[in-house]
Design a protein around this nucleic acid. Structure first.
Length: 1096
RNA sequence: GGGCGUUUAGCUCAGUUGGUAGAGCAACAGCUCGACAAGCUGUGGGUCGCAGGUUCGACUCCUGCAACGCCCACCA
């Protein structure tokens, strides 16, 4: 069977056939074997929130590039694929659609129905994602694909939670969280974004309770969120307002003194403002501070609750009124005040849905924004609203629901990231066990090379960031250094349920249970804690002792976690009988993705991992597990936006569970932006589907461009147009200027005013689906077309090629040259890939293949394939051609795998054995072919030098022809006046030059003379005459122009070389180089001048 | 407010340790010559954001400024 190529390059038919072939042959499967060298990449698992966009394409292509490159280098290569359930993100997408399309909320349909819909959505997304990845050529081991909520991952989550819980690293605390009132869940700091809103700053007056003579009757406070006053538990004032203000004034004076003229005015204005407060504010504050010390109170307006005045340095006499209302349950700073003054207490005035709770008195039930209006109106009526100022504010919004988040006091689960007393045992029970001060510290040590050595004394590996180690490590370090506790509970319906049974229990009941519980709780698959209201935490054994002491609390909370899920069913009923219930919350999605590098490999026990039907086993017949073989991995490829969210957490859990890093290298690729410079994202609806690009340009073109775009750390702006679905003729709509439509990912066509759908999610709603396109990818398609056609030409000529050992020294010039250039390309490409520079690597290959191989070599060898040419020469040319094509296909394969694989098959049919001195290693599939090694022996400086001369002459002659508009078909006679080495080279290469420059004959003689109608071509110090090209005026002008340009350059160089400073201080080799180049120019100028004299 | 990044041809971007600026696309002129018009051949185009400094010499190093972007913190 032959695989003859079609006449035209057509990726749309070629690529699916290749995909099918790869998948059928399971070409990407990974199985542990005897090889020591392995290469493992864990795919940054896409969320099942929609289709992939170009940002994912970048991520996937970079990984595939590295994977294919390493696979060809002979590494045992695993690329693990999979998807993330993405708790809040997925649930909110499904909820949003429910709202948009059906106008219903999750509460309308209920928990079960919603979860069911999310599963259906997940299946749909996952199918689409895998389709997209396979269309892009991702060479993942598809038989090991995981999902963060599948049985294998779920078990790892469970075990990790259990271990951390048992180690006391997971705890439940009453903390202020960012509350999303729309989704009704806590969200992490990094799930927030800022938005500037026009808000108002309200000055309120709180009456003093029973004011005494000489005391102010009111205390003034200011707030942007007046409704939070319902939760106020104190008013704070600085303990020493006068002193604090004086200090601020002194600091400002110093600033004025040091200010640049430009800053001075502002600094002085600020100083004046502060000085003015000495009289306008401080006397009042001093009185208030005295009242605070006297234990005086103020009356909370509207509610009539008396609240204390406290002294706290949080209240800043330089700002606002100098006094602050304290709302511990709804403001992080006020929360801190509460921690310093526990007696003031905290009042949570808000319900989970953002409405006012029971503490809000008559305002109960109102939405917070409605309550704000009513409260302001009522305060105004009571004469307690001093004034209102407009003010622009940066307000936190939830990334998922796009609504304002509220700081909200609630009980949540946390992972302790800070150092703990006695440290933490990392990798417990493994050979790599070590002790770390804390989880965050372990991750910091991992990038600083300060992890303790392995038990044998060998130093541990260190995480390295590429391509800018310093910059990205700084980001990572800065974030981790805060060691902030990680809030892991989410009040969602979609995710891993928190596996803790808990409930309040009267102490006498707990103590009565000791005989039963005592022994059970010592098992190593059960962990339990007893927690008191005031935050004490005891192990059960400690609790049984402590709770018998006098003064112990009457009730405590009991928390129990089982290591294995099955125990929930077995022992749950008993716990329920004792008044405990399974925590209703689910885990933060990052908790499961943090485990990805080992959960996917079957940790904690690959032998018993419940893989899906049809998947590859986790353990080979000889007993090697994928976890042992493939962990730790090699390289993590991702965008810099999740260094903190994900990278750091994977390092933490890898060290904690296994005592070893999940990867050594982190490759951070560029971010893809849209035409407006905004990051592509699913939630913004500006992400374009790689399949749209593929359908127009092909996956190889997409990959080529994505590689070319990845230069270093530069973000990539990708202007995108939609192809109008409303016209029969193609019409492009610029997405940077088109207005957004009603739903995410829909836009309005400016011409027809009709809405179209770019993300393909609203067909059912009747919106026409539009494909996106970007002409940037045409460049990639052009390259593929060139590759295709060059190969086609080669195939016309290599048929019947047989291998016989060639002696390079005897090969014709052009053959030695192309092998030398190939060798250079191999070495350079390898270095650039090692350097994580795909753009440079594909640039090198393009340059070699197109500008050297196609433009010169193919043209140079063509004569040898003509029927009248020497058959022996043709045979050698065939062999060299096949060999260079072979190596080129291998080199290009990681970049443009589909086309190269297709061409490889054909090449194998036409010339099964290829090589120069010895045959290259064969392979049926290019995927598994051996990567070209550098062959220093193929470097041939002499051949390169000679071909360079041919090229220079050729270009110079072509330029002359072009200037005189000599038709390409017209073959010119050429006489070159040259001697010595130059003449030798030209004589040897005369045939090549005639062929390339369209010459009928070439004579090289020291005494060559021009005819009257000759054009003159000057290269270096030699001259060529092209008779028959007459126009003496034009010729003179041309030569003069050349000479003038040269004179300018010579003048500059001469000036430099006459500069004594340069001669004295510049390195000798630089001076020598400049001298040589000056001499060369002078020689060429002399020749030009002589030519001009000849013309008269 | 703190930290980081970017600014080079009309566009998108390269430019490794300082030695007079490169590519692709676009533009212009000419080519249907047996692989390729998604191509071939040739041409034009830049005060390297601005101002100083170091140096014999600065796109490159230092300082300041401007514009744009990102991250972190804060905002009663």
């Amino acid at each position: 069977m032959t695989s003859a190529l079609p006449e035209k390059y057509d990726p749309a038919t070629l690529e699916p056939a290749v995909t099918q072939k790869w998948l059928q042959q399971k070409a990407f499967g990974a199985t542990p074997d005897a090889r020591e060298n392995r290469y493992v990449v864990m795919m940054p698992l896409p969320n099942v929130t929609g289709a992939l966009h170009m940002g994912h394409a970048m991520d996937n292509v970079m990984q595939d590039l590295l994977i294919r490159w390493h696979r060809m280098q002979g590494d045992n290569t695993l690329w693990m694929a999979g998807t993330d359930h993405a708790g809040i993100a997925t649930q909110s997408v499904v909820e949003k659609r429910l709202k948009e399309i059906e106008g219903r909320t999750r509460h309308d349909i209920g928990r079960e129905a919603l979860v069911e819909r999310i599963w259906a959505w997940k299946e749909q997304c996952q199918t689409r994602i895998v389709t997209q990845q396979q269309a892009m050529g991702c060479s993942c081991d598809w038989d090991r694909t995981r999902f963060t909520m599948d049985a294998v991952c779920a078990r790892a989550v469970r075990h990790t939670f259990f271990r951390m819980f048992r180690d006391g690293l997971i705890f439940r605390g009453n903390r202020l969280v960012n509350w999303d009132c729309a989704l009704q869940t806590a969200v992490a700091d990094d799930e927030l974004y800022k938005e500037t809103v026009q808000g108002k700053f309200h000055y309120l007056r709180y009456p003093v309770a029973n004011p005494q003579a000489g005391e102010p009757t009111h205390v003034h406070v200011a707030t942007t969120r007046p409704e939070t006053m319902l939760g106020d538990t104190a008013v704070a004032v600085h303990p020493d307002p006068a002193g604090a203000l004086e200090q601020a004034i002194a600091e400002q004076q110093a600033r004025v003194a040091a200010a640049t003229p430009k800053e001075r005015a502002d600094a002085e204005r600020e100083l004046e403002r502060l000085v003015e407060r000495r009289t306008s504010v401080v006397p009042h504050l001093v009185q208030v501070a005295a009242m605070a010390r006297a234990g005086r109170k103020v009356v909370l307006p509207l509610l009539g609750r008396e609240i204390p005045v406290v002294c706290d340095t949080w209240a800043d006499p330089t700002l606002g009124t100098g006094c602050v209302k304290v709302t511990p349950a709804h403001d992080p700073n006020d929360y801190a005040v509460w921690q310093r003054h526990p007696h003031i207490g905290a009042v949570n005035m808000m319900q989970p849905d953002g409405s006012i709770g029971a503490a809000g008195g008559v305002y109960q039930g109102l939405d917070r924004f409605e309550a704000r209006k009513r409260i302001l109106a009522d305060l105004d009526k009571a004469g307690l609203l001093e004034r209102i100022e407009d003010r622009a504010m940066e307000v936190d919004h939830s990334d998922r629901s796009k609504t304002v988040v509220e700081p909200w006091l609630s009980r949540q689960w946390f992972v302790r990231m800070a150092d703990v007393e006695g440290g933490i045992l990392m990798g417990r029970g493994t050979a790599k066990e070590f002790r770390s001060p804390g989880l965050a510290q372990a991750a910091l040590d991992a990038t600083n090379g300060t992890l303790p050595s392995l038990p044998g004394g060998k130093p541990r590996a260190q995480v390295q960031f590429h391509p800018d180690q310093d910059r990205y490590r700084k980001m990572y370090d800065q974030w981790l250094a805060e060691k902030r506790d990680w809030c892991i509970s989410r009040q969602l319906w979609w995710g891993h349920r928190i596996p803790v049974w808990r409930g309040d229990m009267p102490v006498h009941k707990l103590l009565a249970l000791e005989p039963v519980l005592g022994s059970a709780l010592q098992r190593d698959d059960i962990a339990a804690w007893v927690v008191t209201d005031d935050g004490k935490r005891w192990s059960p054994a400690e609790a049984f002792v402590a709770l018998r002491q006098p003064g112990s609390p009457a009730a405590v909370e009991v928390q129990i976690c089982f290591r294995d899920e099955a125990q929930d069913a077995q022992l749950g009923p008993m716990l329920q009988g004792a008044g405990l219930a399974l925590d209703p919350d689910v885990l933060d999605t990052w908790f499961s993705s943090a485990l990805w590098p080992h959960s996917t490999l079957g940790w904690p026990n690959p032998t018993t991992a419940a893989v899906d039907a049809g998947q590859s086993p986790m353990v080979t017949p000889d007993g090697t597990s994928v976890l042992d073989y493939y962990y730790p991995g090699s390289c993590l490829v991702t965008g810099r936006d999740i260094i903190t969210l994900w990278v750091a957490r994977m390092v933490v859990t890898g060290l904690y569970n296994l005592g070893d890093l999940p990867f050594r290298d982190v490759f951070l690729h560029a971010t893809i932006l849209d035409g407006k410079g905004e990051r592509m994202s699913k939630s913004k609806g500006n992400g374009i589907d790689p399949l749209d690009i593929i359908s127009r340009y092909g996956a190889d073109a997409l990959r080529y461009i994505v590689c070319e775009l990845q230069t270093g750390t530069q973000d990539i702006r990708l202007p995108v147009q939609a192809i109008s679905p409303f016209d029969s003729e193609e019409r492009l709509i610029d997405l940077a200027t088109a207005k957004q439509g009603p739903f995410v990912g829909t836009y309005v066509d400016p011409k027809t005013g009709k809405v179209f759908d770019l993300v393909g999610l609203y067909q059912k709603e009747g919106f026409a689906q539009a494909r996106a396109t970007s002409d940037r990818f045409a460049v990639g398609a052009n390259f593929c077309n060139k590759l295709f056609n060059a190969a086609r030409f080669a195939f016309l000529n290599v048929e019947g090629c047989t291998f016989r050992p060639l002696d390079r020294a005897t090969l014709p010039l052009e053959d030695r040259w192309v092998l030398s250039r190939l060798q250079a390309a191999v070495t350079t490409t390898q270095a650039q890939l090692c350097d994580y520079n795909p753009s440079a690597a594909i640039g090198t290959l393009r340059e070699f293949f197109w500008n050297e191989f196609c433009d010169w070599y193919l043209e140079l060898v063509k004569p040898r394939f003509r029927p009248e040419a020497d058959p022996a020469g043709a045979a050698v040319a065939r062999q060299v051609l096949a060999a260079v094509l072979d190596q080129s296909l291998r080199l290009l394969h990681p970049f443009v795998p589909f086309l190269t694989e297709t061409l490889w098959t054909r090449l194998d049919e036409l010339a099964p054995v290829r090589g120069i001195e010895t045959p290259f290693a064969p392979s049926k599939l290019l995927v598994h072919a051996q990567w070209p090694a550098g062959r220093p022996a193929w470097s041939d400086a002499a051949a390169e030098e000679q071909v360079r001369a041919v090229q220079q002459w050729c270009v110079a002659i072509r330029e002359t022809r072009s200037r005189y508009q000599v038709a390409p078909k017209v073959r010119l006679e050429c006489r070159i006046a040259a001697e010595g080495a130059v003449a030798g080279v030209l004589e040897a290469a005369a045939a090549l030059l005639c062929n390339m420059a369209g010459l009928s004959s070439l004579t090289v003689a020291s005494g060559a003379t021009r005819t009257a109608d000759s054009a003159t071509v000057v290269v270096g110090g030699a001259r060529a005459y092209l008779p028959g090209v007459v126009d003496l005026d034009k010729e003179r002008a041309r030569l003069r122009q050349q000479a003038d340009k040269l004179r300018g350059q010579i003048e500059g160089l001469a000036r430099k070389l006459s500069n004594e400073g340069f001669l004295a201080k510049a390195p000798a080799d630089v001076v020598a180089k400049e001298r040589a180049s000056l001499e060369a120019m002078q020689s060429q100028l002399a020749t030009l001048e002589e030519s001009l004299r000849e013309l008269g």
